[in-house]
Write a protein that binds this DNA or RNA. Structure first.
Lengths: 388, 388
DNA sequence: GAGTTTTGTTCTCGGTGAGAACATAACAGG
DNA sequence: CCTGTTATGTTCTCACCGAGAACAAAACTC
């Protein structure tokens, strides 16, 4: 049975709600606003905030006075409060950032890596360089799925079920790992195009398609943490065999590989990605062969989205990576292909197809979110309050 | 912001947890067990139960003494407590039942109907006949999707977006409606094969395939309440056009229609269903043509399940309707087709494919669950406590 | 029949948020 | 410049809640 509730837990519960409101707010909240939002009295709000200030979780600064009424204070992250670090580990680069309550990101360091697990040692060293006693949790975005929270698979790097318990050993700070596509979706749901949605989906289109189902702002992980491989459903009737071991995957018709294959080139790493960008450029310039490849790509994307909408009924779908280009260049085609594959009775309310607004920062932002999710729990907050 | 919490709400919160524990328990709980399960003291449990007894929500009866220790009491539904009615509205029959806290079902009445919306009037009359002041909420299972909680679409009956606000007017008791496939899945998750799962799926296979994604025992509804049309994803590469208006739906290869089509017959209502059963019988008797049709059906089922498992990573998948027969007759074929379409790296942990255990009672049981979900909310319970 | 075990009951206590009353600091208008 | 208005902060009382300890009660065991 979850969530035991004693009258003391109540305080913590409301303090977590308060911190969550501050963290999620688009603009800083005043203390009075926070009280209204939470539905608590001004007196209670004062007490809650007071304790949180003691615990160095919140800081009050005078709010510039806007209209009538006694001036109030703005609730901001405490200057000595806990920080989350976020890591975006890509196929050949990494980025380390520090993120405070509310989501403000400060990039700390980044670099290239040698595409071996040694990269984790480098990152660990970078974390060490920047860590202070304020560092509380690290969120880590990888470019491959993680099974059972432990086995990392990055096919483009040839990493086959690498053991994360080895790469991220006991000497690391507490670290939460998830894959980039899911975290990018989480970022859109929390701070981007999908903000406020109940049921939504996000897809990151690169060599293939990864994504996530987002319910009430939470990314779904599945039983083994490897939900989201939508690109490996046979949604477009391809007859090709996929690297994943299945025939006919959606990803064979959408993404960089699909664009490149159209030109008879063998889909490869890096060059493949650059070539795909080149094809998009040529299509923009009117090259008919490139345009045809782009059309096919967009149509296959829309077709798959329609199929998924039938099954999961999202109110909105956001895209990142090549998806941004596809929306920019072929929105109509995507939408018409989507509509064509929607069950007829739902065509008058198709899912919105939105460009993601997080840009390249999606995985990093999502990593920060899971780190802060871990900090904004009753247990953590209670411990921190007692420690003060 | 949800769930305001005052110290008075705390009492209600814990009482709801207590009622939920009683409702969800497989066997009746004693008061002492309930205290342990909820993590509260015996004194608190006594107080909570006492008030709930006053409110006629729980009743205490002496527990037969099992071992040492002072005898305790069993927590059972109050004999004058609220009841949920559950309706299973099928294509040509309906069933009305009464369901008490804990889920015990008493069938009240049933009958055939004329396949027009007039059926709702009949059902309304039956509810009227059996209603007492104990009736609190009606849960209603339909055989078609409901859009935006209001527009009911049952293609086999030719009902095209019938307005539920008209069929279930203000003179009805509070009524919650959802479709049968989703409710059958909910029933499996709460009281059947999927009990205790975190991520699971259920599919009901009849003429086509409807289903639901179940997360922590809750069925997902989507943005417009029409999630679950997994049968209308192009998972098996069919080239046929589907009644839904899309080409290539999974349902064209799995279910009664698919079986019948194999024999050159035109998929129709009733006869089609009977014919499908006949084909299964013949396949069991060794008819090679029937066996081939069954094989194709099972393989297509497995293929789709594999694709969905890639995307959603369920730990278990339960089936009802024809799915039960398919598991019984061709489990190996389903599982091998599923494995073949699982990404290679996840083949060592395929989703369990389970026969649903609710039998025909799935939709009715699920309807009872949504009705009781509505009753076991803080607001309801608080009102009831204050009323007493 | 005495000891053990489990649960029920009673009482006190610290903690929690609500609510009312009052204080305070800005602005607006004459 | 002064007064009234408005929104917020502050203080105090109060009802309520669950924890915990101490004790009572009812079964079983040996």
């Amino acid at each position: 049975m979850p969530q035991t509730m004693t009258s003391a837990d109540l305080r913590t519960h409301n303090q977590v709600r308060l911190l969550r409101a501050v963290h999620d707010a688009a603009v800083p909240l005043t203390r009075a606003e926070a009280a209204r939002v939470l539905g608590i009295g001004r007196n209670t709000a004062a007490a809650l905030v007071g304790e949180l200030e003691q615990a160095r979780l919140l800081h009050e600064v005078p709010a510039e006075t806007g209209g009538r009424g006694r001036p109030t204070t703005l609730l901001v992250p405490h200057p000595e409060g806990p920080l989350a670090f976020a890591v975006d580990f890509r196929e050949d680069t990494w980025t380390l950032a520090s993120v405070e309550l509310g989501g403000a990101i400060t990039e700390l360091e980044g670099g290239e890596h040698d595409r071996t697990p040694h990269a984790f040692t480098e990152i660990r060293a970078a974390i060490e360089r920047h860590a202070t006693d304020r560092l509380a949790v690290v969120g880590f975005a990888t470019s491959g799925p993680i099974r059972d929270g432990r086995r990392l698979h990055i096919s483009h790097l040839g990493w086959d079920e690498v053991d994360l318990d080895v790469l991220i050993g006991a000497d690391w700070p507490e670290t939460l790992v998830d894959n980039d596509a899911r975290l990018a979706g989480l970022a859109e749901a929390r701070r981007g195009a999908l903000r406020g949605t109940g049921t939504a989906m996000h897809f990151h289109i690169d060599f293939d398609i990864g994504g996530t189902l987002l319910l009430r702002g939470d990314a779904q992980r599945g039983a083994h943490g490897i939900a989201g491989e939508f690109g490996h459903m046979p949604l477009t009737g391809s007859a090709l065999e996929c690297m994943c071991g299945v025939r006919g995957c959606w990803s064979l018709d959408v993404g960089a590989n699909a664009l490149v294959r159209r030109f008879g080139a063998r889909p490869g790493y890096v060059e493949g990605r650059d070539f795909a960008r080149e094809i998009l450029r040529r299509a923009e310039d009117g090259d008919p062969q490139a345009a045809a490849a782009l059309d096919a790509n967009a149509a296959a994307l829309g077709k798959g989205l329609g199929a998924l909408a039938n099954a999961l009924d999202p109110e909105a779908i956001s895209l990142s990576g090549l998806g941004l280009d596809l929306i920019r260049l072929r929105r109509d085609l995507i939408e018409s292909a989507c509509a064509e594959n929607l069950m007829a009775f739902r065509r008058d309310a198709p899912p919105q197809i939105l460009p993601g607004t997080m840009g390249d920062a999606g995985p990093l932002t999502g990593a920060a979110e899971i780190a802060w999710d871990a900090l904004l729990t009753p247990d953590r907050v209670k411990n921190r309050l007692q420690g003060a």
